[in-house]
Simulated scan of single mutants.
Amino acid sequence: MITDLFEEIYAKILEYDTIIIHRHVRPDPDALGSQLGLKALITKKFPEKKVYAVGTDVENLSFMGTMDQVENEAYENALVIITDTANRPRIDDKRYTKGKFLIKIDHHPDEDIYGDISLVNTQASSCSEIIADLAISLDARLPMNAEAARLFYGGIIGDTGRFLYPATTSKTMRIVSELMEYDFSASEMGQMMNTNSKKIANLSGYVLQNIEVNDLGVAHVILTQEALEQFGADDSDTAPVVPLPGTIEGIVCWGIFVEQATGGFRCRLRSKGPVINEVAKRHGGGGHPLASGANAADIAEIEEIIREFDELVVAWQK
């Protein structure tokens, strides 16, 4: 079935002269790797096509690439492809609805079904893995190139935590092996993704110093606006600190709760075992079984999420 969808997507790429690629707001390496990697594939094979990647640029991921500026008129007869975005409210740049044909490519649980073609593979480690697999499967019709390989590699190591997370499979490693045959430096990409600014380093120290862990191994840190301002940071700078609690012995699941300037908290939720995405859904979010996001209106809702995590851990330990 997936190879059939590869063929359908390729047929649409052939059909359209203008292709506009979107991904989710507040992008991570996989969002950018899948989006920009797909652009690199298409532009290399079809230089006559107009191919754009749109959305907000991210300063600390600028080594992945930058976004294009696109006029509204470009959407009139365009193929629009959305990568790495489970639900429509999270798509960056709402003009995606103005295209003529819409394709969704994603690896998150398919709870918001959209797109004229929808390729969702929840067994894949990342959206970058899916699109790399598409290129490998299509072979000479949409051949891999060094820039696309670099971007897909960055997306995969970002979403697998350098191959530490359970989503890493033997297929992931086979695809990575093929990507590393191309002329880019995997170690350089890893180093760039592992290098943080001084403010992120200081924020990391704050997280480690202020983490609260209960007897069940449920941990949390609340990053208030005051704490963020102390380091000259904002919500977009918090992604690198999310894995830190998982490096501490005894922590089973955790939340980083980031106060928003507009009120409420963004909840970055992670787990080493208990499935947490149902908790995320109950609090206006969703995601993967072990990595999800949600929203909390106030401290009371944060406390409720922590209580729900406690219950999950108790059931999981049994």
Rank of each mutant, 00 (worst) to 15 (best):
Y153R: 02
L14N: 10
Q191L: 15
M1I: 12
I9K: 03
L102M: 02
K198W: 07
F101I: 10
K49M: 04
M180I: 12
A297S: 15
E304I: 12
E212S: 10
A78K: 08
G37T: 01
G205R: 11
P166L: 02
E188I: 05
N145A: 12
G255E: 06
G217T: 04
V54R: 00
R141Q: 15
S125P: 08
F152K: 07
T172M: 00
S271E: 04
Y96I: 01
D92K: 09
I105F: 05
A146S: 15
L223D: 06
V207Y: 07
I251F: 06
T85N: 13
I276N: 04
L203M: 14
L138C: 08
A261V: 12
A227S: 15
K98Y: 03
G232S: 05
K98C: 09
V242G: 03
M189R: 12
D112A: 09
E7K: 13
E76D: 15
R268D: 04
V314T: 14
E178C: 04
A261R: 14
R282W: 02
I302T: 04
A124P: 02
A300K: 15
P27W: 02
R150Y: 09
S271Q: 10
R268E: 04
D215L: 13
A86I: 10
A31V: 13
Q260F: 04
A296K: 05
V80N: 05
L228M: 15
R26K: 13
V25A: 10
A315H: 11
L79T: 05
V120P: 13
I157F: 12
G205H: 08
Y206I: 02
F63N: 02
G263C: 10
E178K: 10
T247P: 00
V213C: 04
R26S: 12
R162C: 04
L142M: 08
G55M: 01
A261G: 09
N214V: 14
G158F: 07
N194R: 06
L14R: 11
G246P: 10
A148F: 04
D159E: 14
G284M: 07
G286T: 09
N202C: 12
E311P: 01
Y75G: 06
E147F: 00
K94P: 00
T97F: 06
P29E: 08
Q123V: 06
V314W: 05
M67H: 01
N202H: 13
R23S: 15
Y10N: 09
